[in-house]
Amino acid sequence: MRTRSGSRALGALALAAALTFGAAGCVPLDEQEAPPSGDGGTATQMLDQLTVAEASSMRGYSRSHFPHWRKTGQNCDVRDTVLERDGKDIRHSGCNVVGGRWESVYDGRSFTDPSSVDIDHMVPLANAWRSGADDWDDTKRGNFANDLDRPQLFAVSASSNRAKGDQDPSQWKPPSQSYWCQYAGDWVAVKHHWRLTVTSAEKAALTDMLEGCTWESKP
C-alpha cells in the first residue's frame, strides 16, 4: 500500500504498547501519523483475496457490542489519541485534547474545535457486523473498534462521518475524489486484516476506485 517511514512503524508499536499496558498520561509520540495500510501486498491483490458474500442480517446488532473508546492513559482515550495524531498545534487539558487544527480528508473542511470533529471508523461497526463481526465476541469487536494499528480511525468532519453512516463504497464515497485511492486502499486493508467479507457491489466499487491508482506499493 503506501510507503511508510521507519518512524511510523515505531509510532504504531508505541501506540500498541500504550493500549496494552495502560501507560499513565498521554501517549508520548512526536509527529504522530496515521497508521499504515495493510500488510498483504497491494490493495488490488488484497481485494482479490477477500471473500465475496451477501451482507448478513443486522439482527442482534448494537454499538455496545463494539466497546469504545478505550483508555490509553489517565483521562485519555483512543479518541484523544486520534485527535492528537491527525491534528496540528494540539492543546491539552490534562490528557484530553481541547484545541488544535484539523482538516477532514473526506471533504477538506477545517476545524479548530475538537467537538466539531468525529472519529470515523473506516469500516463502520454496523458494516463489520454484516461482514462477519456478528460471529466475534465483544472483546474482539472492541479490538476492532479501537484499532490504531490499521488505517481504521480518522478525525473527519462530523457532517461527512454522518453522511457516510454505515455505508460501504458502493453506497458512499468521500466528496473529495482525490482521496478515493487512499480511501479504497484503507478500506481493503482493514477488511483484509480482520477477514471481513465484501458484497459483490462493494468489490466492484472498490475495483473502480483503485483503477489507475499509481501509489500502490508493498509497505
Rank of each mutant, 00 (worst) to 15 (best):
N143A: 15
M122T: 12
V105T: 05
N143M: 11
V105N: 01
Y106K: 09
S157Y: 05
Y106E: 04
D138F: 09
T139I: 12
Q152G: 03
A133D: 07
T112L: 03
V117T: 02
T139S: 14
N127R: 12
D138W: 13
W129V: 02
W102Y: 11
R109N: 14
S157I: 08
V105G: 08
F144K: 03
R130H: 03
S157C: 05
H121C: 10
V123H: 01
L148V: 10
S110P: 01
W136N: 11
N146T: 05
R130K: 14
G132F: 06
W102N: 09
L153S: 00
S116F: 02
S115K: 15
G108R: 09
E103I: 15
R130T: 03
D149A: 13
F144M: 08
V123P: 02
D118M: 12
A145M: 09
D107H: 06
D107S: 13
R141Q: 06
I119H: 04
W129E: 01
S115A: 12
G108A: 15
V123M: 00
V105P: 02
S157F: 02
F111Q: 08
L153R: 00
G142A: 09
T112P: 06
Y106P: 04
Q152V: 05
D113T: 14
R150E: 07
R130E: 01
V117E: 01
R130A: 07
T139E: 12
A155S: 12
A128R: 01
